[in-house]
Every structure is written in C-alpha cells, then in structure tokens.
Amino acid sequence: MNRDLGAPRPDQAAYMLRMAGTGRTYKEQLLALLDVRAGQTALDVGCGPGADLGDFSRLVGAGGRVIGVDRGPAMVAEARRRASGPAPVEIREGDAHALPVEPGSVDRARIDRVLMHVDDPAAALGALHRAVRPGGLVGLAEPDWDTLVVDADDLETGRAFTRFTTTVAVRNATIGRRLARLAEEAGFTVLTVLANTPVLRDPEVADYALGLGRNTRKAIDAGHIDEERGTRWFESLSQGPFLASCTVFTVICSRGVTPMADPDEASSHI
C-alpha cells in the first residue's frame, strides 16, 4: 500500500475506467433493470471516458442510438476515442443541469455516481425528467458516504475519516439515501430501490478507490484528524487483513408509469 499520505489524485479518466470494473455487480444489476431494448435511444449522463457506453450500444443495436454527455472536454475526447459498438454512439459536451438533448427524446437513461458531485442534484434530475419520453426508464446509482467503514483497531480515527469524507471531501455525500425521494420530487415514479455494499479486501485497491491516503492527509491538514494518529491509522491498514465498504443505492424509476402493486416484489427490494 502506498504510504505517502500526500499522494496526488489519480488521473480522472484512468480512475473512472478502473472503477468501472470495481463496481461491476451493481452496474450489471442496474443495466438489467433498465430493460434496454433494440432500437431505443439510451442516454448516459456523466459518461466520463465512456467505459459503459459499449453496453448500451450492444443492447440498443444498430437500429438504436446512444448519447453520452459529460462536461469535461478531456472526458469527451476520450469517450469519443473509445466509442464503439453496433449502435451509433454520440458524445456531447454538456452539463447535467442543462442536458444537450431534445425534450422527450430518450427511452432509457442512467446517472451513475455523478449526482454526488453536481451543484444541484434536484435540478439535474429535473433536466433528466424533461429529456425522457413518457414511459421511459431511468437508472440512478449513488453511494452514501455516511456508510463508509474501514476496519482498524483505532475506531475513532476511522470514524473521523468518514466524517471528513461526508462533510468536506464529497459535495453531496448522502445522496444515496436521498435518491428515491429526489426522483419522486422531480416527477418520476420510483419502481425499485436496491442497496449494494461492495466489500474491498485489497488495501491497494481501496486506497486507489477511496483515496484513503490523500484524504487522510487532507483531514490532517484541515485539523480534522491528529497527525500522529492519522499517520498511524493509515499505516496500520496495510499491516494485516483489510476490509472497507460503502453502500451504493440504486433507484429505477419511470416517467409517467405507475408501478404494479406487488407486496412480495416490493419487500424484496428493501
């Protein structure tokens, strides 16, 4: 494990491509629940370097269309370079709060770990509601950083690290638990709510994914964690069996469709 608490933030495109594999379980679940069909138009908001656009292209087929939107020019360029598949893939530079798509033109849409970063999640969901056709399905996935746990003997420093993550490091840290409510407030009908808790056992992978070293350093510098305790806590993470986890919430919703009343089905998603 890299013991440099001042390690720089990894390249954003490289980070997103690597993390696409780490969260494969909830991503596959979300994609299956979206029920993407041949000939449809699928939208990926905050597509980053386009790691998941190929899945949409494969599902909508040659008669469909895939649109990826990202506000970062470097991400847009990388997504265009990587774009491939049977369906046309169009990458557009734009903001989640003002999506560059025609109103009511999208059959399926996804926002994956993007709302935790935006200025106004409610406004972004409102823009998405305008973009989706009546009856269209939307998949949302966001972590709830209050659920971040890192196993170590020093529980208080671990809790301080989580508090720093939720209050300073991540803009909308509790967006996961708020997804269903915000979706309903934006006009969507919530069909399914799921929670997945990926478990990381490799400290190197966790350091890369969760920014353990760099965020411990930031927390120390900001006075949230004592330097000696923070350094000792971080170094202890690579000195034995490791475990860290954080819950990711997935919400599937529709525009203008009432879900079937099925108590058994509903209870299975709680």
Rank of each mutant, 00 (worst) to 15 (best):
N196M: 15
V190R: 11
D153C: 03
L194S: 15
R177N: 10
L210D: 07
T162R: 15
L155C: 10
T157E: 08
E156P: 00
P198W: 11
F161L: 13
V205R: 11
A169N: 11
R177H: 12
V168Y: 13
N215G: 08
T197L: 11
L194Y: 12
T189L: 10
N196K: 14
N215L: 13
F188E: 11
A195E: 15
T189Q: 12
A152T: 03
T167V: 09
A183V: 09
L155S: 08
A195G: 15
T189D: 15
A195S: 15
A173T: 05
F164E: 10
R177C: 10
E204N: 07
L182Q: 14
V149E: 06
Y208E: 13
L148H: 01
G158W: 06
D151P: 00
G158E: 06
A152N: 04
L212N: 01
P203Y: 00
G211L: 06
A206P: 03
G211K: 06
A152C: 01
V170W: 06
E156R: 10
A206Y: 05
G211Q: 07
A195D: 14
R163E: 13
L155R: 15
V168T: 15
E185L: 09
A183Q: 09
E204M: 01
D202P: 02
E184C: 02
G158C: 04
V149S: 01
L191W: 14
D153I: 01
P203C: 00
D202S: 12
A206V: 07
F188R: 11
D153V: 08
N196P: 09
V190A: 04
R201T: 12
F188D: 10
L148S: 03
D146Y: 03
